[in-house]
Design a binder for these strands. Sequence first.
DNA 1: GCTATTACTGACATCGATGTCATGACATCG
DNA 2: CGATGTCATGACATCGATGTCAGTAATAGC
Lengths: 362, 362
Amino acid sequence: MTTIYDVAKEAGVSPKTVSRVLNDDAPVNVATRAKVETAIVKLGFVRSHAARSMRSQRSGLIGIITGAISTSPGAGEPAGLPDIHIVQGAQRIFAQENLTTLISDTGGHLDRVPELVRTLLEHRVEGLLYVADHHQQVAFPAAGARNRLVLVNCYDDESTPCVLPDDESGQYHLAKGLIERGHTRIGYLTLAERQRAQPLRLAGYRRALAEAGIAFDPALVIPAALMDPAHEYDLLWDALDRLLTLSEPPTVICCANDKMAMRVYGLLRDRGLRVPEDISVAGYDDYRIIADHLHPGLSTVVLPYETMGARAAQRLLRIIRGQQEPGTTSTELVSGPPVWRGSVLSRTANILDFQSIGRNNT
Amino acid sequence: MTTIYDVAKEAGVSPKTVSRVLNDDAPVNVATRAKVETAIVKLGFVRSHAARSMRSQRSGLIGIITGAISTSPGAGEPAGLPDIHIVQGAQRIFAQENLTTLISDTGGHLDRVPELVRTLLEHRVEGLLYVADHHQQVAFPAAGARNRLVLVNCYDDESTPCVLPDDESGQYHLAKGLIERGHTRIGYLTLAERQRAQPLRLAGYRRALAEAGIAFDPALVIPAALMDPAHEYDLLWDALDRLLTLSEPPTVICCANDKMAMRVYGLLRDRGLRVPEDISVAGYDDYRIIADHLHPGLSTVVLPYETMGARAAQRLLRIIRGQQEPGTTSTELVSGPPVWRGSVLSRTANILDFQSIGRNNT
DNA sequence: GCTATTACTGACATCGATGTCATGACATCG
DNA sequence: CGATGTCATGACATCGATGTCAGTAATAGC
């Protein structure tokens, strides 16, 4: 590899002058600069990041720890949008700031995290992002990075700064939108109880009902997702059956995520029900590949992973740069709007029209 | 940051001895080693990668250039499995070898590639992987990395080593499997003509037909995917309509990818056709989120991205280490098997049964 | 016309590790 | 018992850049 010394010799100047040309540090005579630049091109010189960052004590690196890249197929994937989108959003911000991101993948083995953190620290990352694959509590072994760490999609009990999805608000706005569209019997196939998002979303659902003066009916809310996907299908079939055989069945079914909604499409079709003419369906996540391409398109709630990643990145930058945090709270919530596609029928426009459709097809 | 000098002072030894403990280079007295290790823990010492790699001339870094992370929603996504799986496979191999991967994202801007390459070279990556988002020809500006570069999912005209999906074989085995299941009229909704995979897959389709002695009927093969997804939907509807209104319509429809198959599910349902009782459907990619969760499950062909990534990584390692390449060819094909799920009806078991089903529902 | 800046350049030390070489204390061998 | 080898350790140079400081020449200010 050629060094600035080679370049200096070639151009007949001192190494320091080459450095000045490279960094545009201090004034350099145009003729000198030209000579140096010619030499650089001629020798194909490329700066050594190692030498540079060693001297300047700045690595220009940000570490991201995630399981996104290797959430292996088959491993208990906790249903939801792939967290790679979070990484995406963060990387966008860091790239703008000329920071290189060093992405470390857990490969699904959480016990490898301390090792990964160590590697990142060896690279002298200036900050660290920990990205979880779903909203959860974690105990991140930050070892020496505690004060330049931001958690994304997770939180801990040490008030480490974190960025979380606003599950309550998301489900609230979805339910509110459904009510505005004339639905009052809103079925809800939920996540497993112990999923962190679950009580939050349920709270949002109930808030929307309460605001509209609709009584909460526990029979309409059934858990239909398990951590273990193996038995999930039967569970879903059963939950759906319970909803549809109620004496006063729902006119719309909210699903805990888009993947579940996709299955519900199939199950409803098996029962001879059309979406949305006979029954409306909504999801959660706005998992584009599903929501966009299902037919009809799936109404759902944006799980704002990209934004969360970007926010976390901005927050980390503020911390690194020693700027005062705007608020004093460690938790930052990011909410995503509902997206309305064909899967939800509006019953407000013309009730009579709806009834005639219903009569023809039930 | 503490250095080995600090550790040396704390432990009362020379820096070199600390280095020896760290690298387990040369024999160190157990008592000395203990002192050093204690000092390391006490001071929270972490090696500097920069200094290390500068001296040893080994970075332990591999660069990966991809658009995987930021194939932004909305940008003309060329339908297919997200290339993140390729990165995944490669990273698995590199992690085994204690190499850290530096993932550079094009952010969808191909013109940023030279800049990314430069950054990677500044980090003195020992090898470079370029990952494309679909099977295509590229002109990669390798600038100085030409001899430690492997292309994945793409190839160039300079015989750079590359790893590609075996599209011919994939479609061949799918069609062969369909024929074995009693299908002879096999509809095929293809990719756009200029997609590299298209002629290859068509060749596979025709080879299977030829081997079974079935005449090729051009009316059964219709392009239904565009590079621009905006008009794709109408195109697909029209293509499907043409297939279904043939005097002798197909008993199965092969789609260019799983996403298209998902849409076809919906369109077929609109026409009152049941999958697979009335018509079978097959996809391509084995995009798990779709293929697994559609109802019924989608029969498709594995696009072996994870394996391709791993193979490319292994190949790059061989190149870096100066080991002789096994073959002399620059191109390495990786084939993926068909996966049979519920969307394809076997007509071989009992033809009469099938006919009765058909009569009831047509 | 003399001082105060500014433009431009280079010598040298330094960042934090490791490679090379030297050295002393023992152990082993013939 | 002397020659040789191994263990254990440290002094010193070095990797490739940049920060500090110094110095010269040209320009500006009064």
